[in-house]
């Protein structure tokens, strides 16, 4: 029983990590209509940026900000110079998926000669242990949960109460109509890539902190869990992604305690398949996976 209580604590951390990643992913899809399969590789690149900052003797929390900035700029440039030109050209949905997969392959293999095959880990004190009724977490893990909660509140505030958030929702609903109403959709989309890129970068660093060590090959796993949470919640729905992250994070950690930790992603995949069979539109979406593309 103690094992499951401890796993519940890890589940809290896991869902925080997944929530940051999945909200960024689903916002990219919902607002810019782009399934960015390079998301996992941008995450891992940002984790490495934080690694080099950390290696220079600076605390990982500064590294986290560096990773977020890198993720933001990288995603912005990726959209500006690759995705947006293809979208303007009228490339089909499927064409865009193939383009993003090619980009993902290129990022991973450009990174490989720079950082090498071997796993690395951040050098940092993990902080003291905190105990609360059977749940044992390090202060770093508590901090990760805190970061996630603050970020989710910020995203909620952004979408609900700011002009930019309103413009984002309008652009997501109907880009042409939004433009005709005087919303600078181009600038809105640029800011979406900056914001979601920052989330992506942050998620990469946090995910790397949460797993003891990481390597380039982790990029695919990061992508799968983010995808599973986003699809479960309903693609393009930030609040759905948060719910999806809670469910996936908790189930994967509990299954790791009950079964075997190396099959965490398999469990995430199992949930993904179940959702696709039983409720392809996801928990919160009316449209989601069912509607015709475009």
């Amino acid at each position: 029983m103690d094992l499951y209580v401890a796993a519940f604590g890890f589940g809290l951390v896991g869902m925080s990590v997944i929530a940051i990643a999945a909200v960024g992913f689903t916002m990219q899809f919902g607002i810019t209509n782009m399934i960015n399969l390079a998301y996992g590789e941008v995450m891992i690149s940002s984790a490495y940026v934080a690694y080099y900052v950390n290696k220079a003797g600076i605390t990982i929390w500064v590294g986290m900000i560096a990773g977020a900035l890198f993720g933001a700029v990288f995603s912005f440039l990726l959209n500006r110079f690759v995705y947006a030109p293809f979208q303007r050209k009228g490339t089909s949905h499927i064409g865009m998926v193939i383009v993003s997969l090619a980009v993902s392959l290129m990022i991973a293999n450009l990174l490989l000669p720079i950082v090498g095959y071997y796993s690395v880990s951040y050098q940092d004190t993990t902080g003291g242990l905190l105990r609360a009724g059977g749940i044992v977490l390090t202060t770093n893990q508590i901090a990760i949960i805190g970061v996630a909660v603050v970020l989710m509140l910020l995203i909620h505030g952004l979408l609900r109460y700011t002009r930019l958030g309103k413009a984002m929702r309008a652009t997501a609903a109907n880009p042409t109509l939004a433009r005709n109403c005087g919303i600078p959709t181009q600038r809105v989309i640029d800011s979406v890539w900056l914001i979601t890129g920052a989330l992506c970068g942050l998620a990469g660093v946090v995910a790397a902190m949460d797993s003891d060590s990481f390597a380039i090959s982790n990029g695919a796993g990061f992508l799968i869990t983010a995808l599973a949470a986003a699809v479960l919640g309903g693609a393009g729905q930030p609040y759905g992604a948060m719910i999806g992250a809670v469910i996936i994070g908790m189930i994967t950690e509990l299954s790791a305690a009950a079964w075997a930790p190396e099959y965490k992603e398999v469990v995430a995949f199992g949930i993904l398949v179940l959702v696709m069979v039983l409720r392809p539109q996801g928990l919160l979406s009316k449209r989601g996976a069912l509607a015709a593309a475009g």
Binding site: H93, M276, A289
Partner: peptide
């Protein structure tokens, strides 16, 4: 039967990609 029946084409692609990795 899982992938091709209801899903949108880009979701099909993602599901198959994830299947391959897993």
């Amino acid at each position: 039967l899982v992938v091709l029946r209801k899903l949108r084409s880009d979701y099909q692609a993602i599901a198959l990609l994830v299947l391959s990795i897993i």
